[in-house]
Design a protein around this nucleic acid. Sequence first.
DNA 1: CTGTTAGCGCGTTCAC
DNA 2: GTGAACGCGCTAACAG
Lengths: 353, 353
Amino acid sequence: MVKRNDYTMRDVARLAGVSVSTVSAVVNNTGTVGPDLTAAVQKAIAAINFSPNEGARGLRTGRTHMLGLIVQNITNPFFVDALRGVEDEAIKHGYEVLVCNSNDRVDLESRHLNALRLKRVDGILLAPTDSYAAREILGQDRAPLVFIDCIPTKASVNCVVTDNFESCYNAVRYLMQLGHRKIAVITGKLTHSTSIDRVEGCRKAMQEASLSLLEETLTQGDSHIESGYRIGLNLLQSPNPPTAIFTLNNRMALGVLRALNELKVPCPGRVSVISFDDADWTDVVSPTLTTIAQPTYEIGRAGAKLLLDLIHSPAERALREPQQILLKSTLCVRGSTGPASGGVPGAVPSVVE
Amino acid sequence: MVKRNDYTMRDVARLAGVSVSTVSAVVNNTGTVGPDLTAAVQKAIAAINFSPNEGARGLRTGRTHMLGLIVQNITNPFFVDALRGVEDEAIKHGYEVLVCNSNDRVDLESRHLNALRLKRVDGILLAPTDSYAAREILGQDRAPLVFIDCIPTKASVNCVVTDNFESCYNAVRYLMQLGHRKIAVITGKLTHSTSIDRVEGCRKAMQEASLSLLEETLTQGDSHIESGYRIGLNLLQSPNPPTAIFTLNNRMALGVLRALNELKVPCPGRVSVISFDDADWTDVVSPTLTTIAQPTYEIGRAGAKLLLDLIHSPAERALREPQQILLKSTLCVRGSTGPASGGVPGAVPSVVE
DNA sequence: CTGTTAGCGCGTTCAC
DNA sequence: GTGAACGCGCTAACAG
């Protein structure tokens, strides 16, 4: 047993000459204690700088006032912004946030899930590493759960995500308006709903223009810089290169830009680049990067809000259908996208709308 | 009282036909329970999917197995990397991390400090917003505390930081070797030890070369992009511009680069730029950025390690002098720094070593 | 080896 | 309006 020199309510009670329950009543402001005693208790509390033990309180009330947040990879600024949103909302309601980083590993994710369970957090926000793995945890009884940046299954679950389908649909249409017909798409892992929805959005836009999303123009990366770089090199050096590259994530775009600079391929002269996710540096890189900005902070905030809602009304929760919150993104046009006209000879297919 | 449908040890005990303490002994693996009973208990645990309530355990043991991490501003990637280091180390020892973002506000910082106290975390890692404010919390009795990215006072405190003084000393010497004599320094808030130490490092290097760090070449920013941009514009448009700009933080460098591009000032042709903090994008921006890379992850890891050390040996802690861990940085030379020779006419002062 | 007992710090009926 | 008693889920003495 570790020695803790924290003061307890008993100390306060003794000092104020009252009973523990009176102290408790004052601390919790139940309003049933007379003004004189209240003052005495408050004085005693201040005197020894007493602060109630939230752990013990939680044991009684069944509330820990802690939220768990598990993110795929904290290295991705997207999740940092979401984290800010989560924390701001949590604080506002007197909650603290236990942050866990899965580091793209499913095993770490479930380990964190278990740790949060032991800690009896009041609710969990989960940005899963893999949609299929995420489904398995759905059946289990645990604290209220809200997914962010992922819709793990068609079945109804509480989640908040960007409208990935529409965002990509619009982005590809934008590229096609610029005259692009051969558009390469670099995706994240296709076992994640986010990637899947984004690809579908691309596919729809292209189908409407009687183009098809060919295997050769769709490449799976892993959301990290290196994969963007490697795939970018391949794409740019292929005999029949695309006139536009669409990376479905920020950091893969960084890799593509690196490949671009290294190969000294003019952009947007020969190839346009557009990427999902905005960032600090998009207007300082060369070329400045056209992006689709997600409401990152808002995703976190809305997720936390929904979660706190579930926590505070468990009765309704059972009745109400889970909510799927879809947030809109913004297209930020910058220097990396331009007309396809000056493309490589032969790169423009004969398809006409 | 909220209804929790979690199972307790009593349920397990009942199911296994043993007493609660036996269950406890099995769970904690004290090795005093016979093999047959152990098996029975484990079976019962598995049957109802029991998991011990860490909160209740903490009430007994006085350990919450939680660490608090308060960072100045989570938007800064430096702290995200440190966070990763903290978490990895924490997990290894069965701890979870409560992450708090002060958002550069001293009042939020102390609010978080208080919340962590209520939660009875076993230890706190603090990256303070302001060194002066940080001193005030030193006297208070609370959980073991380790500072990161800050030495709030000359008096001995446990902390782990980059050797800011030496890093800057070396960086300025590097610039001087390239022939630079008029070096502008853009600092973060000067109420933070980190900024102060960095400035001192610059000053020493310049003094050794009989140069002085003039007020006109030393400007205080606030570590955000905007301030770098604004100060950068001023500097570049001044009648007697510097031949080199040293930003003491990542994001201010981003601002300077923006100013540079906007004004179309050749870099490093007319002015060189070097910055503290490395980043993902340093080799994709134009020009690629020369930086001083801090061992960010390691700062977090070492900080957590030191903290866990303090937690696990409170007896020695009282005896031992607090530790100040100083980590080395790395100079990453890229495209934004070059010889000063081609500088603006008149920009080279007549000072000769 | 195992069970009984006594709290950890707090909130919450109940009598008074 | 106030205080005594009980229990939240668990660990740690101690007894057997």
